[in-house]
Design a protein around this nucleic acid. Structure first.
Lengths: 205, 205
DNA sequence: AGAAACATACAGACTATATGGTACATGATG
DNA sequence: CATCATGTACCATATAGTCTGTATGTTTCT
């Protein structure tokens, strides 16, 4: 066997992520991770000191991917949108596009999985979860502020709630899509959010 | 000791529900349920043959409460609303009212907790979860159809998505409220949904 | 009415297995 | 050969579930 363990490490993380989203962290055993990753205990505990360390690393990796997706689509929206409103609409549209391609119901969001088992994790992990949501709030809120700065009419709006609503709709759509076993739910729900934003500022225009 | 075990049974279910929402089903041990309920193993396994049986009963109880809340608020909305649009707006408003009173972030939805650990449960349980979501979809869809029947203009709308969006927003709001530790999120998100419906049919008017 | 006789509700010790984690040996690779 | 990466055997504890005992309530029969 090669002396490069990074593949093994990745396979462990991939297996664990899939299992957490299917069975929860508490319902996922190390033994099962090992089986699914096709390795042995020695390899597992070489890469991760404890199951808890795996949980932390898994969240860090997901957080990095999430952050990247957020920033990437934000920058694309900034390039593609002609004004502040268009930028937000494009931003949402990009996510719609991404989720429209899925056939299987999206496996789910690791944040949500952890939050529904919050007491299994330490305070630091829970802070990480909170700040992840606040990051989305911040970016969306920034885009909304830009719209209001350009067009005015922000007085009648709860901009924080409107910013949160993107995440809210996404998280809720993941759950609903799984529950009714229909992957199309996600893109369609994001479409409703986009339409809401459109309507809000078209009316206030 | 009294011979009426219904209190004990209820205490087991209450403890289990709280624990599932804090730690997930897989992260909840029978031992812990026993401790929290202040009973012993004998009592537990007298009332529930297995841990799985507890899970089923817990879901049945939650489902019954959920169904009751849905039907109750639906009927109240029917009585209070002057036309179809008002009925839906009142319906959403009633839930806003209920969640606005909460100080603590709502403990969460048992459906969502189960769905994020779906593979731990049998096919029958998963069907129950699906039909619970479809029940909400059905009621909301019915109210939306009524609005369209009265006012027209339903061609441009995805009524199914709009119906689902109530549940989607609620589920997403539960998660977000816990993540950012702010109970006000739930009522405010429902407020946004109500405003969206209002705007959609005010514009189409 | 009173006491067997029975049923219900619970306690607590016990068991088998699953699970997280360790120790150590072995193979590959620079 | 030295070190990194992995396999294997093993261990301690946690966990779901069992068994037996026992207190308390209910029914039945005289």
């Amino acid at each position: 066997m090669p002396r490069d363990g990074s593949q093994t490490r990745t396979r462990i993380l991939d297996a664990a992520e899939a299992l957490v989203l299917e069975r929860g962290y508490g319902g996922m055993s190390v033994e099962r991770v090992i089986r699914q990753a096709g390795i042995t205990k020695g390899a597992f505990f070489y890469h991760f000191k404890t199951k808890e360390a795996l949980a932390r690393t898994l969240l860090e990796r997901f957080d990095a991917m999430d952050r990247a997706a957020l920033e990437d689509n934000h920058q694309r929206a900034v390039r593609l949108g002609s004004d502040a409103l268009q930028r937000l609409l494009v931003f949402v549209g990009l996510f719609e596009e991404a989720f429209a391609e899925l056939e299987q119901p999206y496996p789910g969001c690791l944040y949500a999985a952890y939050i529904y088992e919050a007491k299994l994790f330490d305070a630091d992990t829970q802070r990480t979860l909170g700040s992840s949501f606040l990051r989305w709030r911040g970016v969306l809120r920034g885009m909304l502020d830009d719209i209001v700065a350009e067009r005015g009419g922000g007085e009648a709006l709860d901009l924080e709630a409107l910013a949160d609503m993107f995440t809210v709709v996404l998280e809720g759509a993941f759950i609903t899509a799984k529950a009714v076993d229909d992957a199309s739910v996600i893109a369609r729900q994001l479409g409703e959010y986009r339409k809401y934003v459109e309507l809000l500022f078209a009316a206030g225009r």
